[in-house]
């Protein structure tokens, strides 16, 4: 087992009726990496995950995990998953759920280690239904790790959690990363992908539109945020080449663009009284918006 790729989608197209969820997608998960599959709702992230989990049949193309079919028994025992829409029955306790899931695997992690890894020590006697949203997600995370998996899928692990709780869960995922396992994480929080991933694949409308290290993705788009006080309106600059998005905040105009020089020249031409000008490098969020815009020409991105 020395091949660098632990899971792979090759030329995968998936449809739900007439809706195309994935189109000609190639996706490789490399050994030991944390791969973030990033994209807005409806991009096809969950479909990709479920093809690799074997819970959706492959329609066109190929899906393999550890070189085998994703639903092969040997694969199931070495893989863990935290699904997006998933809870476990409310009336059983955390300890009971962990006990049951551990029984499924040949070499389970000791329950006390799981509680520590997920940061839920002391909750083992509590019923699942009595937990907070963040605690529930931590339990689901612990269940994903029960079998000491070599490959873990986390499908939007922090969706619907508030910022504090989300950052708390990141800590657990980061600690887990150091154990050298392979993790595939889907998210539409760009900050999350940036904070956790070694590599990012950006999915948009069922296609891979970008792929690389977080820094690569940023440099590829090189988006900048231009901010100034001017009488030029946001609408007036949308046609300037490179502009991704513009909006007025208070008395400031804020524009996201891949060509800041062109924009600034244009703005100064139109409004000599322009002042309070700043140009800053954009974060992953902006990079992502720019990428999305590239593959989705007409219409503004929300």
């Amino acid at each position: 087992m020395s091949e660098p790729s632990v899971a792979r989608l090759s030329g995968v197209t998936h449809r739900y009726g007439s809706v195309v969820a994935l189109e000609e997608v190639d996706l490789e998960v490399r050994r030991g990496e944390v791969l973030a599959v990033l994209g807005p709702n409806g991009a096809g992230k969950t479909t990709a995950i479920h093809l690799l989990l074997g819970s959706l049949p492959v329609q066109t193309g190929r899906a393999t995990v550890f070189g085998q079919r994703p639903d092969a028994p040997g694969v199931r025992a070495r893989r863990g998953a935290m699904l997006q829409i998933s809870g476990v029955p409310d009336t059983l306790t955390v300890g009971e759920h962990i006990d049951l899931f551990r029984a499924y695997y040949p070499t389970p992690v000791p329950a006390s280690d799981l509680l520590a890894m997920a940061g839920i020590e002391g909750l083992e006697g509590r019923r699942f239904g009595k937990l907070s949203g963040g605690q529930k997600q931590r339990v689901m995370f612990a269940l994903a790790l029960c079998g000491d998996p070599q490959l873990v899928f986390l499908d939007e692990p922090t969706a619907g959690l508030d910022v504090e709780v989300r950052r708390g869960l990141w800590e657990e995922i980061r600690r887990h990363r150091e154990s050298g396992r392979t993790t595939v994480l889907t998210t539409h929080y760009l900050e999350e992908a940036d904070a956790l991933a070694d590599r990012i694949v950006v999915l948009h409308r069922g296609r891979v539109i970008a792929e690389g290290a977080p820094s690569t993705i940023k440099s590829r788009t090189a988006a900048r945020r231009v901010r100034c006080v001017t009488r030029v309106t946001g609408d007036a600059v949308t046609s300037v080449p490179g502009v991704v998005r513009s909006e007025t905040r208070g008395q400031h105009l804020e524009v996201l663009t891949s060509r800041p020089e062109t924009l600034v020249r244009e703005l100064l031409d139109r409004d000599p009284d322009l002042h309070d000008l700043t140009v800053v490098g954009a974060g992953l969020e902006e990079a992502f918006l720019a990428l999305t815009r590239e593959s989705d020409e007409p219409g503004p991105v929300r």
């Binding site: 989990l53 074997g54 819970s55 028994p73 199931r76 025992a77 893989r79 998953a81 699904l83 829409i85 998933s86 809870g87 476990v88 029955p89 899931f101 499924y104 695997y105 040949p106 269940l143 079998g147």
Partner: peptide
């Protein structure tokens, strides 16, 4: 159990 997703989750395990 199908709606809550637990059945789907269990189907990804060796159960």
């Amino acid at each position: 159990e199908r709606d809550s997703g637990v059945l789907l989750l269990k189907r990804t395990t060796p159960m």
